[in-house]
């Protein structure tokens, strides 16, 4: 039985411009100790997916329009705020994109680190502090005994993300959701933070959902990947499979735009245009207007493509235009 099983999740936002279908029928399984990636451009709905699971969507304007998310027999989407609160930060933790703004600037690190222990594990005072120092050392903060009494602004960006990771993992959760954990960091620091998350995952046996727009991050960290576009998954498979046998035109376009996968002098691929306006209901394939690597003329126009399993464990949206491979001239 998977640790977390999301089925047909739909999250809509009621805005003045209309209903935004930010997440429109997403299904996802996470096994124990597994790392799963969700990849897509900004605005594709990958963060909203995870926020929905933890009830962090501002409501209104947001609302969960449908679906279930079973975690150890509890449906996260319908269990109510009170139950959810005992899971958030204890069984499922989250780290965020911008470590600059995600830590409370008005509070000492020590207080922010021990807070989950106080709330969820009823550990207070010296003992909590001791555990916090231990955790800080584990995430590689030197001189933790002293630094624990600092404020967030006294740390660098990478260090703050380490603090965030320590804070998220201090209760030894089963699942960590990492929302673009390296995007706001310097390139040199990115790898360190990714390695740290992998190390911690191995040590604590935590499952991780990585949200990222960077396929490079996925290739390094994830066992399975879901490629998300316009509120839906267009392709889901193992990381290995995704890179060796990408089926959807969007996946291929993303891979073609990774600099590291090109030899010097070769042109990088860019995906033209913008993701579709999600306030308007989609009637056909959402990727049609930007489809350069497939055959846009074959894209579905009358119905939205459904996911089909092509080989065991490899799912792709069944749109002929997006699955077609353009012959290179």
């Amino acid at each position: 039985m998977p640790l977390l099983s999301v089925n047909n999740l739909k999250t809509y936002f009621d805005t003045r411009a209309g209903i935004v279908r930010a997440v429109d029928g997403v299904s996802l399984n996470v096994e124990k100790e597994q790392s799963v990636g969700i990849v897509g451009e900004s605005g594709s709905g990958k963060s909203v997916t995870c926020y929905s699971l933890l009830g962090l969507i501002p409501m209104p304007p947001g609302r969960i329009a449908g679906g279930t998310a079973m975690y150890e027999g509890t449906d996260l989407l319908s269990c109510g705020e009170k139950t959810l609160r005992t899971i958030r930060g204890k069984r499922i933790s989250m780290i965020f994109q911008d470590p600059m703004s995600s830590l409370n600037p008005y509070m000492k690190i020590s207080k922010q680190l021990t807070e989950p222990l106080e709330i969820h594990d009823n550990i207070h005072g010296k003992k909590a502090r001791h555990l916090a120092i231990e955790m800080l050392e584990k995430v590689g903060i030197k001189d933790a005994e002293k630094r624990i009494d600092s404020y967030p602004h006294e740390f660098s960006g990478g260090m703050r993300q380490r603090v965030m990771i320590a804070m998220a993992l201090i209760t030894k959760p089963d699942l960590l959701i990492a929302d673009e954990p390296t995007t706001a960091l310097d390139v040199t620091v990115q790898k360190q933070v990714l390695d740290l998350i992998k190390d911690m995952q191995r040590d604590l046996g935590t499952a991780v959902i990585f949200i990222t727009h960077d396929l490079g991050v996925v290739s390094e960290t994830c066992d399975e990947v879901n490629v998300m576009y316009a509120g839906r998954f267009v392709e889901s498979t193992t990381t290995k499979d995704l890179f060796s046998n990408p089926l959807h035109a969007y996946t291929r376009a993303l891979e073609a735009s990774i600099p590291a996968m090109h030899s010097k002098g070769e042109d990088l691929h860019t995906i033209p245009g913008l993701p579709p306006d999600l306030t308007k209901p989609l009637h056909g394939c959402s990727f049609k207007p930007r489809n350069l690597l497939g055959d846009a003329s074959l894209c579905l126009t009358d119905q939205q493509p459904e996911l089909v399993e092509t080989t065991p464990g490899h799912w792709v949206q069944d749109c002929p235009g997006c699955r077609a491979v353009r012959k290179s001239e």
Binding site: L54, L56, L84, R85, T86, I87, R88, G89, K90, S93, M94, F96, D98, S101, S102, L103, N104, P105, Y106, M107, E115, P116, I119, H120, M164, M167
Partner: peptide, 26 residues
């Protein structure tokens, strides 16, 4: 509306505590 309030919610802190302990100061 700040990010760190979202962090606090993700930590499972009750809303009342978020307001008194995390938000009021700022």
């Amino acid at each position: 509306s700040q990010d760190f309030i979202r962090t606090a919610r993700a930590k499972g802190i009750p809303e009342r505590t978020i307001i008194t302990r995390h938000a009021l100061r700022g």
